[in-house]
Design a binder for these strands. Structure first.
Length: 796
DNA sequence: GTCCATGACCTCTAT
DNA sequence: GGTCATGGAC
């Protein structure tokens, strides 16, 4: 979690102090050309591991050091906070602290920043009372609001599930289609319904003073287009626009970039210099609207554009690159690109066929153990990848059992946990009283006697009187809704008073952590969890404590300082808004552990993009799992899965393991899957199969073996078609282990662990099968272990 | 109004 | 194997 709010302002000696040419040292000819290129739009096609971040940061450094560009004229856009923070840090290392005046941020936070600055125009554009403290709705909020809207429109939730409706609305927004045009374009029944929902949903968002993720981009584009003087202001200011991961942009983001840069036709201002970096082979977000078109057609979109290809790889061994090249070469219609390295062949790729997913996890665990024991690498050098989040479970189980420190990135995310969302909903209501979705979420949480009946009564009143839900709630509290029974009225009055009281704290200038703490206390939320005997509520409590800590770090940390230059943009009391914005826009990859943390990192292939590890275990190579079942029949989706394979393989620096399982349980049912077609696409001499068939299991193993041994032919066929997870969320997933605690420990007990040696118990938590102990093993570190059977630990 | 049993659908990936 | 929406009992 700490990486989230870290800002490293402390620069050693800026490289630029040695003169601008020092910024060109150590670059290969193509990289150097990309840094030096001046004037016309530039596309850097950067293969995996080809030093694209280096090019971006050195280019910015060179602009500042040699081309007399002021940092305030530079805007750099990425997709994750982590990437933005890294870029800022590296530029700072090159040119010193003046780099702080640059806008380096994600698409989404850049848009939030712009929209908050231009709140007046935004109000005009939306013709609503939208204030600069608008809420940001994520996928879950969006789904809830769509559910309300669909209910209002009397749509059958079976025929028109909220998820489907929300997905269609999202697609429209990514294509910059407004509700009117959606209605005009609608052909079938579904599309007409979607258009209706879209219109009503946008109206409700406006009333709630909220924007969803897609709106952040779409509204920014609309604002720049509707107010040319605003667009011109930004064009005059940002003479250099740089975009990372350009292959992941969707249509709206593409238009946004064009609006920011401007064209010759925008008479007054010369277009700004544009530099985009990307790799079509690593485009894996088509499902959320990203279109490869943007990178493929760059030269058509921006006449005079220059393209530079980076193919030399500085990350992996040639063996790994050859495997990656061979797989990606199967994709049709791609620009040929072959990664190469001077690093030599290195180790062979190790393959393993497991009997089931537990066997696969055990193999991974034992290999990790061997590698770490041999001293070849530490746990922090190792990553385990899988296609879908739920596959992490078996790895977690065995890692916990063995006391192997790990962290799962993503999955059931911290900010998606019920208790965390509840707490944040309170904060959002305090920051934005009109936030209907959040208001309705907390109305009866914890239970205070405001049931469905009372809620729909208030909601109906709001509709009838054409006032907001928040206003109707006040009416209700004042007894002006006759349909409401006195008991409900009292309960609502109590709730309104509670919220007012809490808002008083915000107005009095209390910091976010203090407000959050008060929320948890005065609502009784904390007390309810403390009183509960459900073991899950223990970790809920921990998560809330963690959230308070995050809030405190945010207040004390660099949050506001980082934006010193821009501080005047946002009213001071909006540290609350700033905090909410930050937690709304975090990405999974923002919480990837640092190598120094010494934990094995588990994550999906999607989250792995942009990262690298000395040792990579890529698991679940089975048709139906990876490539995913839903991609098998769809060539475009299969191509995207293949790019995902390419991404996974190219994350590895030294050692790569590929594994699959003959059998795995899905939805509680055992399923057998054939080998992934992508395995056959890897030249056989690059692979060293540690185990190919089951010695124990039955017929399915034989057929799978047969398929593997005729790999060459089927390839043709294929062508035709903080410590552990607990840093940010203490407590593990529920369910699973049934074993009783192997031993009872108390603080102060001395123990001996097979692997970590002697230690002292410093804390214990939970009971029964969930009992854990945090143990200080001295030089081996402080580690939290589950005390279930099988843990190699004895009490002394 | 709250609690609990049932069943659908599910998990693909995520700012 | 989990979550969430729904419906009936109290």
């Amino acid at each position: 979690m700490s990486t989230l709010f870290d800002v490293h302002a402390d620069a050693p000696r800026p490289r630029a102090a040695e003169g601008p040419d020092a910024l060109l040292d150590g670059l290969n000819p193509q990289q150097r050309e990309a840094v030096l290129h001046t004037g016309s739009p530039l596309l850097v096609v950067a293969g995996a591991g080809s030093g694209k971040t280096k090019v971006l940061t050195h280019r910015i450094g060179y602009l500042l050091a040699a081309r007399d560009v002021h940092p305030g004229q530079v805007m750099a856009i990425t997709f994750t906070n982590k990437a933005a923070a890294e870029m800022k840090e590296r530029v700072t290392a090159l040119v010193g602290p003046r780099a702080n005046a640059m806008w380096v941020s994600t698409f989404h936070s850049m848009c939030v920043r712009l929209l908050r600055r231009e709140a007046k125009q935004l109000r005009e554009l939306l013709d609503s009372d939208m204030s600069s403290s608008f809420s940001i709705y994520d996928a879950d909020d969006t789904r809830r609001l769509v559910t309300l809207v669909a209910r209002d429109l009397d749509l059958d939730p079976k025929r028109y599930p909220a998820r489907t409706l929300a997905a269609h609305v999202s697609n429209h927004k990514n294509e910059l289609i407004d509700p009117q045009r959606a209605a005009a374009l609608a052909a079938g029944d579904l599309e007409r319904r979607v258009a209706e929902v879209y219109a009503a949903y946008q109206r409700r968002l406006g009333e709630a003073n909220a924007l969803d993720f897609d709106d952040l981009i779409m509204r920014t584009v609309q604002l720049l287009q509707a107010f040319p003087e605003v667009a011109e202001h930004y064009r005059r200011r940002f003479r250099h626009v740089l975009v990372d991961e350009y292959q992941d942009t969707n249509h709206a983001q593409y238009v946004l970039v064009r609006e920011l840069v401007g064209t010759e036709a925008d008479s007054e201002v010369e277009p700004s210099e544009l530099c985009v970096v990307g790799d079509a082979d690593q485009s894996i977000y088509a499902f959320r609207g990203a279109t490869i078109r943007n990178i493929v057609e760059f030269e058509r979109d921006f006449p005079n554009a220059r393209t530079i290809l980076l193919e030399q790889n500085y990350r992996s061994t040639q063996t790994i690159l050859s495997a990656a090249n061979a797989v990606i070469a199967r994709n049709p219609n791609r620009r040929d690109k072959r990664l190469w390295t001077e690093a030599g062949d290195g180790h062979k790729i190790i393959g393993y066929v497991a009997d089931n997913e537990h066997d696969e996890a055990a193999f991974v665990a034992s290999e990790i153990d061997k590698l770490v024991d041999s001293g070849e690498c530490g746990n922090g050098d190792i990553a385990v990848f899988y296609r879908t989040n739920h596959q992490s479970r078996v790895f977690e189980e065995i890692f916990i059992r063995l006391g192997l420190p790990y962290r799962v990135v993503g999955g059931v995310r911290f900010y998606e946990r019920r208790e965390v969302r509840d707490a944040l909903a309170y904060l959002r209501v305090l920051a934005n009283p009109e936030d209907t979705v959040s208001l309705r979420r907390i109305l009866n949480v914890p239970k205070r006697g405001i049931g469905d009946r009372a809620e729909s009564c208030v909601s109906a009143h709001a509709e009838r009187e054409r006032v907001s839900f928040a206003a109707a709630l006040r009416e209700a509290a004042a007894g002006r809704i006759p349909e409401l029974n006195p008991r409900s009225q009292r309960a609502i009055a109590g709730f309104v008073d509670l919220v007012d009281e809490l808002r008083g704290l915000v107005d009095a200038g209390e910091d976010v952590a203090a407000v959050l703490d008060a929320v948890l206390d005065r609502t009784g939320y904390r007390a309810e969890l403390e009183a509960s005997d459900d073991p899950q509520d223990g970790s809920r409590l921990d998560n809330l404590t963690e959230l308070v800590t995050v809030a405190r770090e945010f207040t004390e940390g660099a949050g506001p300082v980082e934006e010193a230059e821009e501080a005047a943009d946002v009213p001071a009391q909006d540290s609350l808004a700033a905090f909410l914005e930050r937690v709304s826009l975090v990405a999974d990859s923002d919480s990837v552990p640092e190598q120094g943390e010494g934990v094995v990192t588990l994550m999906t292939l999607h989250t792995a993009k942009g990262l690298e590890f000395p040792v990579v275990f890529c698991t679940g190579w089975e048709d139906g799992v990876f490539p995913h079942l839903r991609a098998l029949s769809e060539p475009a989706e299969l191509a995207e899965e293949r790019r995902l394979a390419y991404v996974g393989i190219t994350r590895a620096r030294q050692r790569l393991y590929l594994s699959r399982s003959l059998m795995r349980s899905a939805w509680g049912q055992p399923v057998t899957n054939p080998a992934s077609r992508f395995l056959d696409e890897i030249p056989h001499d690059l692979l060293d199969w540690r185990r190919v068939e089951s010695e124990r299991s039955g017929p399915s193993a034989a057929t799978t073996w047969g398929r593997r041994s005729t790999g060459g032919d089927s390839a043709q066929a294929g062508l035709a078609e903080r410590g552990m997870r607990t840093t940010s969320f203490r407590g593990w997933r529920s369910g699973g282990e049934a074993a009783a605690p192997a031993l009872k420990l108390e603080v102060g007990d001395r123990v001996n662990h097979d692997k970590y040696g002697l230690g002292t118990v410093v804390a214990t938590e939970g009971s029964g099968p969930r009992a854990t102990a945090t143990i200080d093993f001295g030089s081996a570190g402080t580690i939290k272990l589950m005390l279930i059977g099988g843990v190699p630990l004895v009490k002394l």
